[in-house]
Simulated scan of single mutants.
Amino acid sequence: MAVHRSNFPNIEAELFLAYVGMETDLLFNRGIDLPGFASYPLLETEKGRALLKEYFAGMIALGREKSVGIILESPTWVANRDRGSAIGYAPEKIMQLNQHAVALMSEVRSDHGDVPTVISANIGPRDDAYAPSDQMSADEAEQYHSEQISALAETDVDVVSGYTLAYSAEAIGLVRAARRFGLPVVIAFTVETNGKLPTGATLETAISEVDDGTDGYTAYFMINCAHPDHFEQVLADGPWMQRIKGIVANASRCSHAELDEAEELDDGDPDELGNQLSQIRRQFPHIRVLGGCCGTDMRHMERIAEASTAHSV
């Protein structure tokens, strides 16, 4: 069931599942090298494209089994000019691969048309998500992210999703760029073990700054790349909390610094993660998107789906 960008996010599905743990699964569980943590080079080989299709089709199959919607996230989190250059890709080639990623996702969606399926263009930060060393102004971020978003605007993408963002100015620029090209946009902030962004801002402050700087254009906000233990304590009733409609969590309780140094995968406890996310959703029923980030695989996604559909909200 195709979802068109003009309908996003008003889609008739009580719950959507989103998965962005593919890179850690590829690295640690499948032994596939990903220079620069980039998965978009897989688009250049038949074997790589088949592997990506496997992930996308697996998510849609899970959505069918659990009667929930699916948000397919493109393998383009680091498919931007600076990060691509670091591993030898010219900007023109990177933009081409952004478009190829969406085309592949659209093909898979067409082959499995009975599940509400959103195609999300996953866009990551320009710099290190955990410790941005050179923070951009909102104007600089708009200019920078417009290159990638302009390429994506020519595809079947339904929404642009800015993932693992660490400060509000970059998020503001990314939202403005999406608005310039007429695309819906979602912003996902990452937090440290204290529930605050890596730059020290609170979620409430970051969300308020983005909404104030973009006339509230963001469809909704999410939290990603953190374990529920890291942010549960800061979730509280309030207008800013109503803007958070998605949580895509890490399997591991490790800090970002610890994850950066890890030589083995910490895949946590899939049952526990599913139950924790389900509990958060029972507490905040407006949350409509749940999923897995670093350290998760389809076991975690299955448990998240099972726990969250076992309770009526």
Rank of each mutant, 00 (worst) to 15 (best):
I187H: 07
A188S: 07
A188T: 00
A188F: 01
F189V: 01
F189N: 02
T190Q: 02
E192M: 15
E192V: 00
N194C: 10
G195K: 08
T199H: 12
T199S: 00
G200E: 01
G200V: 03
A201P: 07
A201K: 12
L203C: 11
L203F: 07
L203S: 01
E204M: 05
T205L: 10
A206K: 02
V210D: 00
D212L: 10
D212Q: 06
G213Q: 01
D215W: 15
G216I: 01
Y217C: 13
T218Q: 15
A219H: 00
Y220S: 05
F221M: 07
F221H: 15
M222A: 04
M222N: 13
N224G: 04
H227S: 05
H227W: 06
H227K: 02
P228S: 11
D229M: 02
D229E: 06
Q233M: 15
L235W: 12
G238I: 05
G238P: 13
W240N: 01
W240E: 01
M241P: 09
M241W: 15
I244Y: 07
G246E: 09
G246P: 06
V248C: 06
A249Y: 11
N250K: 14
C254G: 13
C254P: 15
C254S: 15
E258C: 08
L259R: 02
L259M: 13
D260P: 06
D260F: 10
E261L: 03
L265E: 14
D267T: 15
